[in-house]
Design a protein around this nucleic acid. Structure first.
Lengths: 342, 342
DNA sequence: GACCGGCTGTATAACGTTATAGAGCCCGAC
DNA sequence: GTCGGGCTCTATAACGTTATACAGCCGGTC
C-alpha cells in the first residue's frame, strides 16, 4: 500500500484527526503543528486514498460517461464539453466505451459500475426501456441520445424527426426528387435510426414525393464503411438517387467516397447531407452539409443535471430536453468551393 | 446509501460472512442457505460497493488510460484495442482526457488520481521527464508515445525517427525534391514533433536534398485546422513544395484540404503523407498515404504490461518497446483512384 | 476564586467489504 | 468413550478516511 494518514501522523507525532484536518481543513490547526504535518506529507509523498474517502463520504468526485461508439468523433466532441463542465463543477469525468454491446450496457444500469462513481451519463443503444426501468435506483443517471423515453431519469436528445425534416427539406429545396436514406432499419435496436427514417418518410410525403423502398438503404452499423457499401449499392441501381440523407456524418462521408469512386460529381450528380457536424465533415472533400446538434449544450447540460441530482439540488422531476440544432450548408449540397474559415 | 451486505444478511437471517461467501465464493456455503441469501440479493437488488472492496482488497479492477487528444481518432482506435485486452484480463478500462494541459497531467503523476485505479496508462505531453521521475511510485504506470525516456516505467512508442525516414524516403522515391514538413517546433513541448522533424532532416540529407528552413512549417497544435493553415502558408511561397510530410494524419488531412482549395492536384502537384493511419485517411478524397503504427499491438501490450505489474507477475525491469509500423500507400502519393476494400 | 468560551488537540466510531480465527455439530475411527 | 476432522456457519479485525464527542489549557469576566 501507499502512504496513509497513519504514517504521516506517526512521522509528525500527532493524531490521525489532526493530519486529516491539515489535509482538508475541516477544522483549524495551530500554525506550528500544521507546518510539521505539512513537511511530513511532503517528505513521504502522501495522497489521500480516494476509495477510503469515497467509502466514508459517500461521494468520489468522479462521474462516468458511457458511450456506444468511442471512435465516432461525435461523442469525442460531446465528451469534450462534458469534461469542461464537470471540471468547472469540481468533478472528474471518465469515459467508458460500451461498444453498443448489450452485456456491456447492462453493466452500466445494474449497479456493478455505478457504485464507484457518483453518477453516470449514459447513451444506451442495446438495452430496452424496460431494462432501464428495472435497474435499481442508486446513483443518479442521465440519459443522452437515442429513444429511451418515459423513464425516471433526465433525458437529453435532439428531436430526430424534426431534424430529419430539415435535412430532407433542404434536399428538396435543391430540386432533388430521388432522395435516398442510408441507415439501419428493420430489426435494428437503435431507436434514432427508426426515428430518422420516419422523419425522412414524413418529409418526403410533405413535399409530395413518393416513398420508394428501394431508396432506403439498410446498413449493419453506422460507420464510414457502412456508408460506402450502401452508397455503392444505391449507385448500382437502374435509377440511382440524386441526393442522399445519411443517418450520420460518418455514414455520409463513406457515401461521399463511394460517389467520388464512381466518378460522379457532388452535389451535381448526388447531393449529400448527414447529421452530427463532426469535424471530419468540415475538412472533407467536398465539405459536408449536415444537421448540427448543439453538442456543447448537450454535454454541459447533461453534466449540470447529473451534478444537481448528485448534490440533491432541487431541480424538479426528471425531464426530457430537446437541445437545439441547426442546418449547416457546405459544398456537398451547395456546390462550389469555399475556403474553410479556420 | 444503497443496499449493503448487512441488509442482505438481515433479510436472509445469516451473518455478513456468509453473504460475502455467497457473493464471491471464497468458501463454500450450504445449498439451502445459499438459496435464501441469493433470493434476498435478488429482491433487494444488491451490488457490492466497489470502493469498500477496493479499500479492503487493495485492488479495484479498474485501470485508467489518460490521453492528451481525446478528439484524435488515433487515440480512439488505440483505446479500442486496450479496452478489449483489459476486458480479457478481467479489468475495466476507463479513459481520461488531459487535453495535454500541464495541470491535468500533473494530476496523473502525483497520486491524486492513481489511488482509485489499479494502474494507469499515460500518454504524457506537457510534463517533463524530471516530473515523472519525481512522482511517488504507488500504482503501476505504463507510458505510451512521446519521448519520456529513461524513467522507471515501461514505455511504448514507435521509433519516430525511423518512421520519419520511411515517410520521407517514400516521397523521395516519387522524385519529389521540395519536401515540406508540417508540425510544431521550437518551444514546443511535444517530443515526438522534434523527433519527427529530426528524422525528416536526416532523411533529406541521406537523399542528398538540401535543408530549407522555409519548408518546415510550424503549427501551434496538431489538428486539421493547423494543417490547413500551414499548408496555405506553404502554397503561398514563391517556390511551393511538391510534397508534404505531416506530423500526423489530422494535420495531413488539413493540408490536403488546403491543396484542394487552391485548385491543385494531389499527388501530381503536391504529394501528401501523414503518420497514424486513422480511419479518416482511408476514406478521404484522395485517400491518405501514411505510416501506420501497430495500434492494436500498442494498446494490447500497454495493458498486458500494466496488468503484469499490478499483479506482480515477474516481467523483469521496466523497458522501452518500439512497436512495429509500416508504410501504407494510398492515393495521396500514388495517384489514381482505387476502390476502398471495405 | 469559580466559571465560561475559545482554541488546539485526541480518541473513537462508522462507511462496506473480506480474511482469519474459531465455534458448533455430526460422523467415523481408534 | 474419546478424539480427529470435515462441514457450516459466525464473530471480528482490518483497509484509510472523516465527523463527532470530548479533553486540556489559557485568558477574561463576574
Amino acid at each position: 500500500m501507499g502512504v496513509s494518514l497513519k504514517d504521516i501522523a506517526a512521522r509528525a507525532g500527532v493524531s490521525l484527526s489532526t493530519v486529516s484536518n491539515v489535509v482538508n481543513g475541516y477544522r483549524p490547526v495551530g500554525e506550528e503543528t500544521r507546518q510539521r504535518v505539512q513537511s511530513a506529507i511532503d517528505e513521504l509523498g502522501y495522497a489521500p486514498n480516494l476509495s477510503a474517502r469515497h467509502l466514508r463520504l459517500g461521494r468520489s468526485g468522479i462521474i462516468a460517461l458511457a458511450i456506444p461508439e468511442f471512435d465516432n468523433p461525435y461523442f469525442a466532441e460531446l465528451a469534450g464539453a462534458a469534461i469542461r463542465e464537470a471540471a468547472g463543477l469540481g468533478y472528474t469525468l471518465v469515459m467508458e466505451d460500451t461498444a453498443g454491446a448489450y452485456e456491456r450496457e447492462v453493466l452500466m444500469i445494474d449497479n456493478s459500475r455505478r457504485q464507484i462513481f457518483d453518477g453516470l451519463i449514459f447513451s444506451p443503444v442495446a438495452v430496452s426501456r424496460e431494462e432501464v426501468l428495472a435497474s435499481p435506483p442508486t446513483t443518479p443517471m442521465v440519459l443522452i441520445g437515442e429513444g429511451v423515453y418515459d423513464v425516471p431519469h433526465d433525458h437529453i436528445a435532439i428531436d430526430n424527426i424534426a431534424a430529419s425534416h430539415v435535412a430532407v427539406q433542404h434536399l428538396v429545396s435543391l430540386d432533388r426528387y430521388r432522395i435516398a436514406f442510408i441507415g439501419a432499419q428493420a430489426g435494428d435496436h437503435r431507436q434514432s435510426a427508426h426515428l430518422r427514417l420516419r422523419g425522412y418518410r414524413e418529409a418526403l410525403a410533405g413535399a409530395g414525393l413518393p416513398w420508394d423502398p428501394a431508396l432506403a438503404a439498410p446498413t449493419t452499423a453506422f460507420g464510414r464503411a457502412d456508408g460506402l457499401l450502401a452508397m455503392r449499392d444505391l449507385l448500382a441501381r437502374t435509377q440511382p438517387p440524386d441526393a442522399v440523407f445519411a443517418y450520420n456524418d460518418l455514414v455520409a462521408i463513406g457515401a461521399i467516397r463511394a460517389v467520388v469512386e464512381a466518378g460522379l460529381r457532388i452535389p451535381d450528380d448526388v447531393a449529400v447531407i448527414g447529421i452530427d457536424d463532426i469535424e471530419d465533415g468540415r475538412f472533407s472533400n467536398p465539405t459536408l452539409t449536415t444537421i448540427a446538434p448543439d453538442k456543447e449544450h448537450i454535454g454541459r447540460l447533461a453534466v449540470r443535471r447529473l451534478v444537481a441530482r448528485i448534490e440533491g439540488t432541487p431541480v424538479g422531476p426528471p425531464y426530457d430536453v430537446q437541445p437545439p440544432f441547426r442546418l449547416v450548408t457546405r459544398e456537398s449540397t451547395l456546390g462550389g468551393r469555399r475556403p474553410i474559415r479556420a
